[in-house]
Design a protein around this nucleic acid. Structure first.
Lengths: 257, 257
DNA sequence: CAGTGGTCTAGACCACCGT
DNA sequence: CGGTGGTCTAGACCACTGG
């Protein structure tokens, strides 16, 4: 009755496990059978089992359990981030009154019942080509990059690097590797750089090894990359690159027609 | 001199090939050494070579070559799609004058020097939960879904499914499985449904097997999913779900501050 | 049709981690 | 400590495809 299209053994096994997980027979956080058990049950070699599990792992359905822990069904939690002006700005006003001394992202997490923390470092480097193009400066020009590894409930969640032309950032509080409570947008406004529009570019890809290591994800796991360029009436003044493991975030934009 | 961190053999090999590709020593479209050659060169088993190649494949750097073709370095071409109103609308006006009888997406491709075609089918189904929630109707209610597989230069490029409440679509030209030259937005406007705002949600994930098959991508390859809900002043009137293989598209939004 | 990648087996050793 | 997944080997057979 099952319309078997003569799948390879490992695809077949992957499909069965996928069905069991999405049907709820294997609930989130529950342990999977061990590789040896699956191999015996299905009369295949352990390598074949591993091919099937690798597929589910790439799809974000199961975890990779080292040691005695075993693999578990992935508990999937998606946090939402608002890209457009209207909605996020309206809520940002409220936030600043309620949560003092933390930036918008930390507050955004509290809204969703999570604790956000950040590890911030600041460097002065030569602008890589992609960043230079967006900032409309020559490649290799000095820029200040403020790198943030953001943690949710203590675990790495996303990378957020903001690049500023050196003439804007140097000597300002942007260089200070700590939270800017009122936000860097307000800070730059006080410095005379009023951002009037943004351009967001969104793409998906596999992380490079460095990104995978910092986010503690397997190297095949896809990430979403949002590149936001902020403009005054005069020129681009910052580029922010945010990288999330794909299943961990959803971007939302509200647009007029 | 190489700061080897005692990587597993296959990660080491993957890193070397990755470097050779990004450094241009293996240019796009060029053939990789065969698995047997790599195994012998590096004194590892063929399975180890395959683990390394699987990683590069997941990262979208190389193709999967069946038969005598061999693997090749992936030729990466990213097409851009505009999410926001301002820019895309201004250009849409011009398009309609120049390209007659084709919809905006087909024209969008011509702008970038490619030929876009679509395979369209229309179904009447019960609304799945996610779609029902966005359309603000009970789950299981009848909806019309207009499914499009879009091809660029003859190859599958993205999936674009638009869901309409049955009361709006039934009996209208939306049900006709062919191009709507003036676009469904203009068509709905003529029918009295003027869309005044959109809400976009963007996420990344691995495709399910059906999506992977339709797009002809390996099942681990990540996709970007854009879900656009269109609203009149009264209510949501359509939900469009577009799915791209992640490396094939970049979404762009222009936003006021 | 020869060579390629795709699939599969049956073993082995080890680092790691929970109990 | 004992069991788990991570890594690796050395084979084998086959489907597909380009020359």
């Amino acid at each position: 009755m099952t319309s078997e299209q003569e799948l390879p053994l490992y695809r077949d096994l992957a499909a069965e496990l996928r069905r069991a997980i999405t049907a709820g027979e294997l609930p989130p956080e529950s342990r999977l059978p061990t590789e040896a058990e699956l191999a015996e049950e299905h009369k295949v070699s352990r390598n074949t089992v591993r091919l099937a599990l690798a597929e589910l792992q790439a799809a974000g359905l199961i975890t990779t359990g080292r040691g005695r822990g075993g693999r578990r069904v992935q508990h999937r939690e998606v946090l939402e981030f608002h890209g457009s002006a209207s909605e996020s700005m309206a809520r940002a006003d409220e936030r600043l009154k309620v949560f003092d001394g933390v930036d918008a992202w930390v507050a955004d997490n509290r809204d969703q019942g999570h604790e956000g923390t950040q590890q911030i470092s600041v460097e002065i480097v030569e602008a890589p080509p992609g960043i230079a193009q967006l900032l409309e400066i020559p490649a290799g020009e000095r820029v200040v990059v403020r790198r943030r590894l953001r943690l949710v409930d203590g675990k790495p969640h996303n990378l957020n690097d903001t690049w500023y032309p050196a003439d804007i950032a140097e000597g300002s509080p942007i260089m200070h590797p700590a939270d800017v409570p009122q936000g860097t947008i307000a800070l730059m406004k006080d410095m005379g750089y009023v951002q009037v529009r943004y351009r967001d570019e969104i793409e998906g890809r596999a992380p490079d090894p460095g990104e995978a290591r910092r986010l503690r994800i397997p190297s095949g796991w896809p990430v979403i990359v949002q590149t936001r360029t902020g403009y005054t009436t005069e020129r681009p003044v910052k580029v922010t690159v945010t990288i999330w493991p794909a299943d961990r975030a959803r971007l939302i934009y509200e647009l007029p027609a």
